[in-house]
Amino acid sequence: MNTAQRLGYGSKERLLIVNADDFGLCRSVNEAVSELLADRAISSATIMMNCPWSADAVNMHMASCPEADVGVHWTLTSEWTAYKWGSICRNHSTASLSGPGGWFPKTSAEVERNADSEEVRQELIAQTEAALSAGVKLSHADSHMGSLYGFHLGKDLLTVAFDVCARYGLPFRLPRRLIPVGGRTIPAEIGDRAKIRVRQAEDRGIVLPDYVTGPEYSLSEGDTYETMKEEGIGLLRQLLPGVTEWISHPSKLTEELRSFHEQPEKREMEARFWRDRDVRETVVRENIRFIGWKELQELQMSLSV
């Protein structure tokens, strides 16, 4: 039984959650995400509580779209050279999560190599509590740069994430089934470990999407909005029955974004994509139904009764 069926939909229905990652990263991202949420062009967003612009994101969320699904974007990396952030946990050591200068490390591989699992647990709790204390009614959780998944060295931190999800009643971004995107293949060891982790999550009552997809994060040489749109429409047409989460990174294209981001044009394209008439018409023609993370959260809550 897929997650769509567990939600009460038909076995062949294709349900889509479009999530905007990195809410709170900067003002340019906050404005784009808030507008897309208010217009219901996307389903949800996840907020980075470590970033200086997180309070601005919360304020925009409360002012323009308080009913929108907003989750916590658990963050353990700080990837940009000119813009940094670090741990917000104040009641427990997080020394193993610190890179040069005391900020989070640049890469997920560094997190896998050095992170102490208990320190990760305390940091995830601190980020979750910060969002709740700010007034956000969290609908789900996910992982910035996939630092919890063990993609690089095989040292995942997912059981820690499951503990925190269970504690706060949050469904989580972990696909029940892996699907290769962009011509990639999935190594056998990753596929086998993913099946174990899915089983562990579901044993804890944590509700997961069936699939996770989205366009390439970076532009390749020669890419334009039209080539990006073609890629995205192709992904929409290929959606499988069940619940799919689409990872998006929308932003307005501003000098602020250009000052630190290496792919600012791509973020503006992703904001534009979900307003594009051709994209919206494809969603209708393909009989794709938009849903939100709150539906998964309500299912999870029902399982805990």
Score class of each variant (00 low, 15 high):
Asp163Ser: 15
Arg193Pro: 02
Met228Glu: 07
Glu202Asp: 11
Pro215Cys: 09
Asp192Gly: 04
Phe172Asp: 02
Phe162Arg: 05
Glu230Asn: 12
Pro175Val: 12
Ala194Cys: 13
Arg167Trp: 06
Val212Asp: 00
Leu208His: 06
Tyr217Thr: 10
Arg176Thr: 09
Glu245Ser: 05
His249Asn: 04
Arg184Ile: 03
Asp223Pro: 01
Val212Gly: 00
Thr244Phe: 01
Leu158Glu: 02
Leu208Pro: 01
Tyr217Asp: 04
Val243Gly: 09
Pro171Trp: 03
Leu153Ile: 07
Leu178Met: 15
Asp210Thr: 08
Leu219Lys: 04
Arg177Ile: 10
Arg204Met: 14
Leu157Tyr: 12
Lys229Gln: 13
Cys165Gly: 11
Ser248Cys: 13
Val212Trp: 02
Pro180Val: 07
Pro175Gly: 03
Lys195Arg: 15
Ile206His: 10
Arg193Glu: 13
Ala194Glu: 04
Leu178Lys: 04
His152Leu: 11
Asp192Lys: 15
Gly222Met: 06
Tyr168Lys: 05
Leu235Val: 02
Arg237Met: 05
Phe162Leu: 10
Val181Lys: 07
Gly183Trp: 06
Ser248Tyr: 08
Gly232Val: 05
Gly169Phe: 08
Pro175Asn: 10
Tyr211Ala: 00
Ile179His: 05
Ser220Ala: 13
Ile190Ser: 00
Cys165Trp: 11
Gly232His: 05
Lys229Ala: 13
Val164Thr: 07
Phe172Ile: 03
Leu178Cys: 06
Glu245Gly: 02
Leu174Met: 15
Glu221Leu: 10
Ile186Ala: 04
Ile190Thr: 10
Val198His: 08
Trp246Arg: 01
Leu236Ile: 14
Gly242Tyr: 01
Leu219Cys: 08
